[in-house]
C-alpha cells in the first residue's frame, strides 16, 4: 500500500525474532501517526455522542436502573480513551508528524494506489450484490419424477456477480469464469437448500 507497510507475515516473523507479540490481529502494522490522530478524534466524538444519547434515554425509576447508565459510562470511557490515544501518539511520534500531510493529498494518494482502487471497486460490487439480492423474490420449480429442480433469486443474482468478480480478479477466460461461478453457486444452493433445509436469500 501507499504507506509501504510490512506484510502481516513479515510483521509476525519480526515479532517472533524479537520475542514480542505484535497482536492477534496483526496489531498496528497498518497504522500511521496521522491515522491514529484521526482515530482519536473520531473515538472521542463517538463517546460524546453516546453520552448525549444516554442522557436523553431518561430515568424511568431509579437512577441505578436507568437504561443509560452503562452506555453513559461507556461513552465517557471512550472520550478518555480517545484522549489517551491522542496523547500516546503525540508522545510516540510528536505533534508535527501527527498533523503532517494534506488530507486531500492523502485521499488522492490512496486512490492512485491500484490495490486501493480494487478494494473500493470490490466494496461497490458487493454492495450492489447485497442490495439487488435483497430486492429479489423469485423461486422457480421444475418438477420431475425423481427430483424438483429449483432456480431462485439467489442463483439468478449470485451467478452474474460472482462471474464478474472472478473475471476481474482471477482474469481467466469468460467460459472458465462462468463455469466456476455457476458451479459453485448451484453447489452452495443445493447444499444449503436441499442438504440442510435452509431457506436462501432472494428465494421468496
Amino acid at each position: 500500500m501507499a504507506e509501504g507497510q510490512k506484510s502481516r507475515i513479515e510483521a509476525d516473523i519480526e515479532s517472533l525474532e524479537k520475542g514480542v507479540f505484535t497482536g492477534e490481529e496483526g496489531g498496528d502494522e497498518r497504522s500511521t501517526p496521522r491515522k491514529d490522530f484521526i482515530a482519536s478524534v473520531a473515538v472521542a466524538v463517538l463517546g460524546i455522542f453516546a453520552m448525549i444519547l444516554s442522557v436523553r434515554l431518561g430515568n424511568p425509576e431509579s437512577i441505578f436502573t436507568a437504561p443509560g447508565v452503562l452506555p453513559f459510562i461507556t461513552g465517557a470511557s471512550l472520550v478518555v480513551m480517545g484522549a489517551g490515544l491522542f496523547l500516546k501518539t503525540k508522545r510516540r511520534y510528536g505533534m508535527d508528524e501527527m498533523l503532517a500531510g494534506d488530507s486531500l493529498r492523502t485521499v488522492r494518494n490512496y486512490l492512485s494506489d491500484p490495490e486501493a482502487r480494487r478494494t473500493l471497486m470490490l466494496m461497490l460490487v458487493i454492495f450492489a450484490y447485497v442490495m439487488i439480492l435483497g430486492q429479489t423474490d423469485l423461486d422457480w420449480r421444475f418438477k420431475t419424477a425423481v427430483y424438483t429442480f429449483r432456480f431462485s433469486g439467489f442463483e439468478l443474482i449470485s451467478i452474474p456477480f460472482i462471474f464478474f468478480i472472478l473475471r476481474f480478479f482471477w482474469r481467466s477466460t469468460l467460459l472458465n469464469c462462468f463455469l466456476v461461478a455457476t458451479g459453485i453457486v448451484v453447489f452452495l444452493a443445493v447444499v444449503f437448500r436441499d442438504g440442510f433445509q435452509i431457506l436462501l436469500p432472494g428465494a421468496g
Binding site: G23, E25, G27, D28, A39, P60, T74, L78, M81
Partner: peptide
C-alpha cells in the same frame, strides 16, 4: 491481548462493541 503494544486500541474496539450491544430494547424497562 489482541492489540499488541497498543492495548488502548483493543480497548477502544471493545468499548465500541459495547455500544453496539446496547442497541435495541433495554432488558429491564
Amino acid at each position: 491481548m489482541s492489540a499488541g503494544d497498543m492495548p488502548i486500541k483493543g480497548w477502544i474496539s471493545g468499548w465500541i462493541g459495547l455500544l453496539i450491544s446496547f442497541v435495541g430494547l433495554d432488558a429491564i424497562h
